[in-house]
Design a protein around this nucleic acid. Structure first.
Lengths: 147, 147
DNA sequence: GGCTGTGAGTTGCATTTTGCAACATCTGTC
DNA sequence: GACAGATGTTGCAAAATGCAACTCACAGCC
């Protein structure tokens, strides 16, 4: 299989464009919950509790970055933490009630946004994008964790 | 068509994960050309010259951000500019020879990376991801430019 | 029981990325 | 020649991030 078959340069370009643009659009969409805060709350909610280290691994960031962002969320009253039953040294992070409220609002706007961007797509196409992205993201996680 | 048919919440989550992770991975991949610099050089090269305003529109950033980043690239000798023949007030930005060199190196690494991430995918799947992302990005541009 | 090492997070310090608002410049138009 | 709009730039401030050094608590070992 040649590079050309897979059109990799084009794919790289689209990934770059998406990555650089998505954050600012998200910030504009829900000014009361930054893209960063939104991403962290989403994962805490989806995973039913996340450790700081999980978030470090997921986003491939320095642990100091996550530590500060989580601290800010706790100080803002959007996140609570409790001891992790499965690991006595770790803490599990959860959205607070207020965190869940803000998350729900931001979620609604994000869904509406993506809904508009995919207007005219067939359901299969939308699902295909989701599936392929999930696969790509999954592969990326695995590779990162290999280190 | 219901939301559920389209699995929008899942799509949103994957888009967020990709956006937050891709930049740091790219920075690690080619430390001599930051993700930001890479994105700007790529567009200048692909478009065969870009105006600062084009980049502002593409990435939906403040013009001061682009202005500074382009200035840095010019000072680093990676970008040159010339008057835009089609618009006397504007300047066209191009990668310099050195810029093209660094871009080629970073490109090779990025392609190799994406190639690895999509190992085991059929060519159709890789092309589908590219096509769908391009469509999504195109829709986003259009909507942003509507404002 | 006390030592020591490791895992999980935090903090000090610096850099990069970004936004907003004010300013500068240049181009056309009247 | 004055004014309006397009194109950038600069001053100022905040958010996001990395690195290295540190704290703290648990775990295993003697």
């Amino acid at each position: 299989m040649t590079d050309d078959d897979r059109q990799l340069p084009g794919l790289v370009r689209e990934l770059v464009t998406l990555s650089r643009r998505f954050r600012s659009n998200a910030d504009r969409l829900h000014p009361d919950l930054s893209f960063v805060d939104y991403s962290l709350l989403t994962e805490m909610a989806e995973r039913n509790g996340a450790r700081a280290g999980d978030l470090v691994g997921l986003y491939n960031l320095n642990k100091s970055t996550i530590s500060r962002q989580v601290t800010a969320l706790r100080q803002a009253g959007l996140v609570v933490r409790e001891p992790d039953p499965g690991n006595p040294r770790a803490q599990l992070l959860h959205p607070s009630d207020r965190g869940r409220e803000l998350l729900a609002l931001a979620d609604a706007r994000m869904r509406r946004e993506v809904d508009m961007r995919t207007e005219g797509w067939s359901p299969d196409e939308v699902r295909a994008l989701r599936t392929l992205l999930a696969r790509y993201n999954g592969a990326a996680s695995a590779a990162v964790e290999d280190v």
